[in-house]
């Protein structure tokens, strides 16, 4: 896969120049609006990075749900199932309109971790930043909106420039000294 826009997006996100090893393990999907990418508690076998469009994320029980928020381009889904002992997805994710996604099956991620460990762990670092954002966004109780829909008020997605905020000595020194 040689789409320059995807290559640039991943390179910026992971803080490296060469992301070809990752792209070798991934495929691009075009998905229509209203498509369920994963269903809460049902099997999930891949990570997905949203390239274009919007996704809605919710937890569900017996047809009832809590809307957790919106996933914007550059953000990944499927990381909880990859890194935890959960058998299935921990939320339902639906495309709000037409969307373009990068799919990286879990088995391919593990192959990448063996073949290009630094790239895989940089991706893990990026996924950690997203996990942190989602934990902060869901810590409070949901509220009931005017339509009777339960929803969380926190912001679920990281803006694009924040993805590689954690890299580098300067950031490390800032954190250590408690500034910025």
């Amino acid at each position: 896969m040689t789409d320059p826009a995807i290559t640039r997006l991943l390179a910026d996100q992971l803080g490296v120049d060469d992301v070809s090893a990752l792209l070798d393990h991934a495929t691009v999907l075009e998905v229509a609006g209203g498509n369920v990418l994963c269903r809460d508690c049902e099997p999930l076998d891949s990570l997905y990075m949203l390239l274009e469009g919007r996704l809605d994320m919710a937890v569900e029980v017996a047809g009832h749900g809590i809307h957790l928020g919106e996933i914007t381009p550059g953000n990944w889904i499927g990381e909880v199932t990859l890194f935890s002992t959960e058998d299935g997805a921990v939320s339902t994710v639906v495309t709000r309109g037409p969307a373009r996604l990068l799919r990286l099956p879990y088995g391919e991620f593990m192959s990448l971790a063996r073949a290009a460990p630094e790239l895989a762990c940089r991706l893990a670092h990026t996924l950690n930043a997203m996990l942190i954002q989602r934990l902060r966004a869901t810590v409070n109780d949901p509220i009931l909106d005017a339509d009777g829909q339960l929803l969380m008020l926190g912001k679920l997605s990281l803006p694009l420039p924040a993805h590689h905020e954690h890299h580098g000595v300067r950031d490390f020194m800032r954190k250590l000294m408690g500034v910025g």
Partner: peptide, 10 residues
């Protein structure tokens, strides 16, 4: 982090 978020969703 994944364990914590899975628990929160639960």
């Amino acid at each position: 982090l994944a364990r914590d978020l899975a628990h929160r969703h639960s």
